[in-house]
Design a protein around this nucleic acid. Structure first.
Lengths: 355, 355
DNA sequence: CTGAAAGCGCTAACAA
DNA sequence: TTGTTAGCGCTTTCAG
């Protein structure tokens, strides 16, 4: 643990002033070959690395971006982090990560202290619209996930309503009539998704049965499953608030003795990486989460560099429907597509009676 | 974007000196009620928040921990981050995340600059043992994942060798004779896992067929599958370097027309969250990754607080075998356990002939 | 208990 | 091109 050399040590070793060293380190200026050589030598000799803290204190920029998310374990957010990090790296920014663990109380404190250490922040939150003003008052540029109705804050999001419509439409086309939605009301996008689904179902005069999970996670999906599948209004298709819930739902449904996807089609949102490896592989709507991270970071960095014009305001990414095996034509006992060897299964237990 | 008040503003407002304000903010001292009241008022009035950068410059501590990992998208690392973050938060530290994206070149630069901004680092890396000295020379306390043979650096890991033995033993007990290992040679744990597997197989006079993937990811597992399953030595059980590879392998095997787990048992390491939701649910070895993150952070923070004694050196977590549906007794056509409705499937395609 | 003063390591005018 | 000189906002002796 050797103490790092300071700018003064270098200046002394090279026989120049500290200002010269500073300029050299920052490439702010050109030098006479002689000086440059001595500088280079001295820096290498001493293994000098300029102290970013001292630098930041003066310049007022830390070259750090704060990223606040709800739960790093949710692959949706993991992807966002990945995308944001990649862009940050390209621009020589580092990422200060804050995982609020879905806790509103912690969030405020954490973000407040985060704001002091970074040049700007990207925030994914369930905070109410009122708090957005507070966020802005922190005095740092912010990019938000999801639009704020009230403030013209820079933000990126996806069309959850359209996504909902897409999924509902897909299911209706497959002949489903008893469609249920397994939602997560605390999310700001839940209502949007419902709206999209309803839009579509209304067009076909179909009802929507709405249920609720206590968290946006797979275990929550598992717990909610029996309530739907063994309840009075057993659906023939269910749309889940996100893929994690859908994954849990599927697992539990099979454990209850249902044969999927034939007893019930299931779909989610987010298109998380492991939906593809589940069985039946999960139908979902891809929100391009990694791109969301990239876009948010790009917008923020542009703002930091004064190019506020470029892509300010609200940016929306297109949702893409990804059809896999978990949604299937209603009433088809065996999969139509014989090539997909993964789908053939015989029902082992009688499915519960439909009340 | 209002400029924050400085310590001087508060001092002026409260009619005291900056030193007093500093002591008040840090709770270093007691004050006369009169002064304390004025201080409190002034701080609230101005919404003063002390600048952590300026503070750090003097104290030399940033209250930030650097965490360098290979790929945030690998759930194993995601869990580590989660665990580490939780402990950090408890101790009022924040996390500077670096995702090296499995790139050795980038890693060195990134870690070097990381070292300057943090009080200590937790590093997960494939760097050779030689580089550990370099890491230490950065002058910051470090906790490493995986032991270094040469240096007595603080580190946490799991017994990969034992884990390998466990998995092999599990498969042998199930009657498997033609066992293959689908590895990832660039990892420092690959050899350990092989060693453990071999230890077990040797005891039973069984051979091990070793194959290699190009990355520790699901797509790599998919790509490697046909080489094993359609090759000259088709295995009846395969152990994968990690769960992601196993997940990919399973998916592709089914697409090739195999019926799993009956045609081939598959297992991995890490026990990632989604192995449970795959089908067949993945047998794995749990390395307690979240706990690894917690432990690493705890050790580092202890070191930073001078309690170097407590838990220094190498700590090893116990691996736990998690048996699920993807490993099954050899030669059993249908699952013995009738209760697990998820396993019943008829073979749709003839399985490829065994050469 | 409180304050004055000396910096932490660096950058940014401004001089030379 | 190079050097001088003020600080950035804060903590920390050391007097009072």
């Amino acid at each position: 643990m050797k103490k790092g050399a300071t700018i003064r040590d270098v200046a002394a070793a090279a026989g120049v002033s500290v200002a010269t060293v500073s300029k050299y380190m920052n490439g702010t200026q050109r030098f006479t070959p002689a000086v440059e050589a001595r500088l280079k030598e001295a820096v290498e000799q001493l293994g000098y690395r300029s102290n970013p803290l001292a630098r930041s204190m003066i310049t007022g920029r830390t070259h750090t971006i704060g990223l606040a998310i709800l739960d790093i374990r949710n692959p949706h957010f993991t992807n966002i982090v990945k995308g944001a990090n990649r862009v940050a790296l390209q621009h020589d920014y580092t990422l200060l990560l804050v995982d609020t663990e879905e806790s509103q109380e912690r969030e405020k404190t954490l973000i407040e202290s985060l704001a002091q250490r970074v040049d700007g922040m990207i925030v994914s939150s369930r905070m109410p619209d009122e708090s957005v003003q507070w966020l802005l008052d922190l005095g740092k540029p912010v990019v938000l996930f999801g639009r704020s109705a009230r403030f013209s804050i820079s933000s990126v999001g996806t069309d959850s309503c359209l996504a909902g419509y897409m999924l509902a439409n897909h299911l209706v086309k497959l002949g489903h009539k008893r469609i249920a939605y397994l939602g997560f009301g605390r999310s700001r996008w839940n209502d949007e998704r419902i709206r999209g689904i309803r839009n579509c179902l209304d067009e076909h005069g179909l009802p929507l049965d709405i249920h609720e999970t206590e968290s946006p996670s797979a275990p929550a999906g598992e717990r909610a499953c029996s309530g739907l599948m063994l309840g009075p209004k057993r659906p023939d298709a269910v749309i889940c608030y996100n893929d994690l819930i859908a994954l849990g739902f599927i697992k539990e449904a099979r454990e209850l003795g249902f044969s999927l996807p034939h007893d019930v089609s299931v779909a989610g949102f987010d298109n998380v990486p492991y939906g593809e490896y589940a069985s039946p592989a999960l139908t979902s709507v891809d929100f391009q989460s990694e791109k969301m991270g990239e876009l948010a970071m790009t917008k923020l960095i542009n703002e930091l560099h004064g190019k506020s014009e470029e892509g300010a305001g609200y940016s929306m990414l297109d949702p893409h429907l990804v059809v896999r095996e978990s949604t299937v034509r209603r009433g088809v006992a065996e999969p139509a597509d014989d090539a997909s060897g993964a789908d053939a299964r015989t029902r082992k237990k009688a499915s519960p009676t439909q009340t």
